[in-house]
Design a protein around this nucleic acid. Sequence first.
RNA 1: GGACGGGUGGGUGAGUGGCUAAAACCAGCAGACUGUAAAUCUGCCGCUCCUUGCGGGCUACGGAGGUUCGAAUCCUCCCCCGUCCA
Length: 333
Amino acid sequence: MAPEMPVHPSTLALVAILGPTASGKSSLAVSLAEKLGGEVIACDSTQVYRGFDIGTAKPSAAERRGVPHHMIDLVSPADVFTAGEYRTRALEVLADLRRRHRLPIFTVGTGLYFRALMEGLADAPTRSDRVRARLNATSAKRGGPHLHKILRRLDPAAAGRISPNDRQKLVRAVEVCLLAGSPLSEVHRAGRRGLQGYAPLKIGLNPTRQALYERIQRRVHLMLERGWSEEVAALIADGAPNAGKAFEFIGYRELRAHAEAGQPLSSTVEAIAQATRRYAKRQLTWFRRESGVQWFAGFGDEPETLAAALDYLQPLLKEFQNAVGQPGPRDAV
RNA sequence: GGACGGGUGGGUGAGUGGCUAAAACCAGCAGACUGUAAAUCUGCCGCUCCUUGCGGGCUACGGAGGUUCGAAUCCUCCCCCGUCCA
């Protein structure tokens, strides 16, 4: 989307490709990077984990075709990575690309991370495992709605927005209230600082539901053929913690259950495909709300989609100085 | 050929006379989501009409009849499936 305001000389373009899993974001990103002088920045909560490669659809060296990729393989399986860390580190990457005059191209699978980057996060305390342990213990003892009662006292407005059954969000809300010493709603009201100096050009991939579901089904098999089970076995052998966040990822939890409890492979495959479909749906729900997205009907690896995306982007990119294929910085207007 | 058991909404499956358009779960669809987000949570889910109401009509528990004020639920016959006996 073209920026509404007059373009300040220091404003740079930023391309973001949004789409559900298996819609071909990575492929399109690499092609665009080649054509436009860009580098790829993954915006994906799972690809930051080292060792979790096949099931997170991390692009292989061959698929990257020499285009630099960022925000991949940042942490080990035992770590907990968060939206806040994503923002911090992605800002560093952006600064680096700015210095080198490269066009940032995001592949966005995790809507929250992208929003955290673009709109910022409130100045809230980071997660505290100590507080969480306490909250989880009491809520386990006193029942689910107990947390909700606490939150109603601390922050009635937030309590109104969060379901009494939503333990995860309740824990976070209470945690912030306790650590910040003021209601979460107030912390949010204080505002957040969004990304400055960039004009986001958003491309959405939206193949038909049926085609997407078929591709998901095929991709599960493909990943297994590439050695997904072996990867999981190796991760278990290397001591990747069972309780760790990374083993919550789709497919990894199912394959671990398959390896450990001996679930039949066919039902495992079905479970993975199903979970992936539901995930894709949630992603689409999120992306539909994203403003200024130019939607394309096909998959990102189809030549027509690439051509259409270029048609859309190239005229817009003329305004900015960080896209190659342009005659450099323009000195006359 | 005989003896049992069973056929319920897209699937699994509860329901043995009215409170049942029919539990629950799954699938599907829609939505929310500011540090776990591939997570977590919410709503809808036979068709249809409108004055959108704990509203009206229609269709529905293998098929056809019957009993009853009232049947997915009881009876009769038929069809299909499973197990066992011949």
